[in-house]
Computed example of a mutant assay.
Amino acid sequence: MISNENTNRAPERGPIIEAVGLGRDYVRSEGPFLRRTRRRIAAVEDVTFTVRPGEIVGYLGPNGAGKSSTMKMLTGILTPTSGTVRVAGMEPSRHRTRLAREIGVVFGQRTTLWWDLPLRESLTLTRHLYRVPADLHAERLAELTELLELGPFLDTPVRQLSLGQRMRGDLTAALLHAPSLLVLDEPTIGLDVVSKSTIREFLLRINAERGTTILITTHDLGDVERLCDRVMVIDHGRLAFDGGLSELRATVPTPRVLVVDLAAPVPEIEVEGARTVRVEGPRQWLELADNPAQVIERVARDHEVVDLTLREPDIETVVSALYRGAAPERGALAS
């Protein structure tokens, strides 16, 4: 188990992230050069949420929705225009250096490693940046090397690493100082299936063993289904949803599908409360508009059924429908 000791850390109380009425505005200049006008644009508007220690929370939204601006305020890169935010008990923009010792940040499209140095030396420099004692650094590096299988490329220059190897190196750099919060921005972007699986299993392990809180933004909804019990959806700068995956599925009117395996092929099943949307030999897909139990009873009464499978809408379908406005009016879903 990875050591979580940090001699500089104050005891944590309450939420590890607490945002109240958080907002961030930008000013855009428009029009001809000599007659430009300035227009206020709200990138994030009146966002309120808390994240408890030990949670894994997905923060989702289409491009331009306000995800990056929120993350930059949480990490102290941006100062909020309105509202308040505290992370690990600190105001990020005022205590950015202190906060850096409490959080780890990984951006999938950028690296914090030194491009021309071997990975091992990059990680040694990271130790000095965070002032991690040498013995703790050695212990954590050994454990992370084993968990993320870094051994074969520790002495390889970062510029020669594959994307998956570099991402594992970035995760290691973000965790060497044992942060209580890990902020991930698109951590599996561009990775192959095996690399994605390795990263996801590792994140679940450090959350379970160390209680590391994880906040993740991603367009790969496989990350969400595998990692997150809770999701927040931001759209046009406002929080549109905050709750569990099952609640999110219930929010958006995407139908469930009953897959029916029959003893022999038959024409499209016609049954009250369902509509056949696909037929392949003895297998038929029925889109449900009624109670599944009642539809199953009606199908079984009229046909020789071998097997039945009830499929809930996948999270990608649900989130896409929410982005398109298939859910109730924005703001009505926020909890």
Rank of each mutant, 00 (worst) to 15 (best):
R9K: 10
A10M: 09
I16Y: 00
V20W: 01
V20T: 14
D25F: 14
D25V: 08
E30T: 15
P32Q: 03
R36V: 05
A42E: 15
D46S: 12
F49A: 08
V51I: 15
R52M: 14
N63H: 12
N63C: 08
G64H: 06
G66N: 08
G66H: 07
K67R: 08
S69Y: 06
K72P: 03
K72L: 10
T75Y: 01
I77H: 08
T81Q: 07
S82W: 06
V85E: 02
E91R: 12
R96L: 04
V106K: 06
R110E: 12
T111K: 11
L117K: 13
T124N: 12
A142R: 14
F153G: 00
L154R: 02
P157D: 05
R159Y: 11
Q160H: 14
L171S: 00
A178T: 00
P179G: 09
L181F: 10
L191G: 10
D192S: 11
D192G: 11
K196M: 12
T198P: 01
F202L: 03
N207H: 09
E209F: 07
T213L: 08
I214G: 00
I216T: 04
T217H: 01
M232F: 02
H236M: 02
H236P: 00
G243V: 02
G244A: 09
L245N: 07
L248K: 10
A250M: 01
T254Y: 11
V259W: 07
D261K: 12
D261T: 14
P267G: 06
E272I: 01
R275N: 05
E287S: 14
L288F: 02
D307K: 11
T309E: 14
P313D: 08
D314W: 04
E316R: 07
V318W: 05
L322P: 04
A332D: 12
